[in-house]
């Protein structure tokens, strides 16, 4: 265990200190996040079964799951309270990953390759 890590320990693991309340969330806080996550999941499934929302299903689902993703990463993985360097080494590749997903969807579904078509039976 390096000295640095031990220093960290005293910040993250310390009890009773009140000067930086955000850096050591209590278990109640975690449970609350858990409840929110559950509610969002329930909402996602509910939205899926509501015929009236068919048209806007995709954006709603993307927003909801994005929210869940952010909650877990920010609070359970502590990025919200931790060094911005951790956020950097995670978010930069994450953006590339999103770029790859979006680019490939565009390249195959919006601008599909092939400059012409023949009928499916051929």
């Amino acid at each position: 265990m390096s000295a640095a890590a031990q220093d960290q320990e005293s910040v993250v693991g310390g009890t009773g200190s009140t000067d930086e309340p955000a850096s050591h969330p209590t278990w109640r806080f975690y449970v609350m996040i858990g409840l929110i996550l559950t509610v969002i999941t329930a909402a996602e499934v509910a939205v899926f079964y509501i015929p009236a929302l068919r048209g806007v299903l995709v954006p709603i689902l993307l927003v909801l799951s994005g929210a869940k993703f952010a909650l877990v990463v920010m609070f359970y993985m502590h990025l919200r309270f931790d060094s911005p360097i951790f956020s950097g080494v995670f978010v930069a590749p994450l953006l590339l990953a999103v770029l790859v997903v979006v680019a490939l969807i565009v390249l195959f579904h919006v601008l599909p390759h092939g400059m012409g078509t023949i009928s499916g039976s051929g």
Partner: peptide, 18 residues
């Protein structure tokens, strides 16, 4: 360097926009 890969694929037939 992450946004240029398909310049290896100009003969693939990606269409003029891509």
């Amino acid at each position: 360097g992450w946004g240029v890969w398909s310049h290896h694929m100009f003969t693939t037939g990606l269409g003029p926009i891509a």
